Amino acid sequence: MKLIINRNQLPLMPNRFYQVIEKELAEVDPKVANAITLNFRDPDYSAEDGGFHPVEIRLEKQQEHWRLVYVTDFAYRGHPYPELVKDIDICFNSKQVYNLFSGWTGERESRSLINLFTHNFATYFDMGVYKVKVSLN
């Protein structure tokens, strides 16, 4: 049985983003969980050498379909002891987008950031840089 993801949530996400998620969840039985967390990791990403930022996506079951809760892009920041922090956070509960350098963004800035982020994310996915872990809760 295929997972049905509500694509009408705000902020709106491009179709290519949903295609990546659906590809990773193609083998998941939607009846065995109430929540799903997807972790996309570049095993070579480090504070010293850089690489592709880790991305975490959370979905929750809502009646017959699934809804996005958040999409978070993490990055190492800080010196001399870098920590992994939220670089971009798309929150579907509050319908807002956060960026580390500018804070909560307006609708127009959010749209530009979401389009850039999802284009890059899907491109990196297609390049095979991510190891993906799917956790069912």
Rank of each mutant, 00 (worst) to 15 (best):
I36H: 02
L38M: 15
E22T: 06
L25S: 06
Y18A: 05
E22R: 04
L25R: 03
N34A: 04
D44Q: 13
T37N: 15
G51Q: 12
A26T: 03
V32N: 12
F17K: 05
F17Y: 15
G51F: 10
F17N: 10
T37D: 14
L38K: 07
V32W: 02
D42K: 07
E24R: 11
G51M: 12
P43N: 02
R41P: 00
A26E: 09
V32K: 06
N15P: 08
D29V: 09
L38T: 13
K23Q: 15
A35N: 06
D49T: 13
G51S: 08
S46A: 07
P30W: 04
Y18V: 06
F40A: 02
V20E: 07
A47Q: 08
A33M: 06
P43V: 03
E22H: 09
G50R: 13
D44I: 08
E24P: 05
I21L: 14
P30F: 05
A33F: 00
V28P: 03
A47S: 15
E27A: 10
K31P: 01
N34Y: 00
Y45R: 11
I21S: 02
V20L: 07
D42S: 05
S46Y: 04
V28Q: 00
T37G: 10
I36S: 08
A33G: 03
I36P: 07
R16T: 12
N34V: 00
K23I: 11
D44W: 04
A26I: 10
R41D: 08
L25G: 08
R16E: 15
